[in-house]
Amino acid sequence: MSLTPDQLAAVVARDIPAGSYVNLGIGRPTKVADHLPDDSGIVLHTENGMLNMGPAATGDQIDPDLTNAGKVPVTELPGTSYFHHADSFAMMRGGHLDVCVLGAFQVSATGDLANWSTGAPDAIPAVGGAMDLAIGAKQVFVMMTLFDKQGQSKLVPECTYPLTGVACVSRIYTDVAVIDVGPDGATLRESFGITPDELRARLPVPLTIS
């Protein structure tokens, strides 16, 4: 069986080393936080200026001055710190973040990332912090479905959508497979509900079986 978004979030959470500083992108990656063990010592960074971010705020906890990068109200944990935007991105760009988890439209076998624009002529471009995150974190994980609604692979030989970053993704976590990408191309680590041979047949890139 392929994985549900929640199950996939649990797989990503499992692979984040204890004690890491981690940024979870807006959308699907946010779910990873729900699966981090309480004793992991993982510190979440949100690029609008906070380390050791707590869970989403509810009811009386909601404070308009305290949101995550998705502008959703969140909470503090003991040991939270706040800082301004230039410091927040210096943390990222200076290589101090261990892991960031992002969504994507496409990832190439060599780790190029396209996740900010589909290039549609009427689209209003909006990049936010994606380009800074892509080149800054020590490891960039991508969470996405492996195939789009038309059945086309989002793991591609070369991205056709506008790039966010070059050779920056180290691993993709998808509903049917976990695949390392990089200078050596795509290497299968795990598959869910599909055999390696079936995957090879459907992917437009060579797939090494580890």
């Binding site: 690029e47 230039a86 991105f89 210096a90 760009r93 209003i124 909006a126 912090g129 800074d132 800054g136």
Partner: peptide, 21 residues
Amino acid sequence: YRAGRIELEIVPQGNLAERMR
């Protein structure tokens, strides 16, 4: 924007902050 009545310059968030810094 769609009516062509405003210009837009997109700057990555970190560059926006650092360029002001």
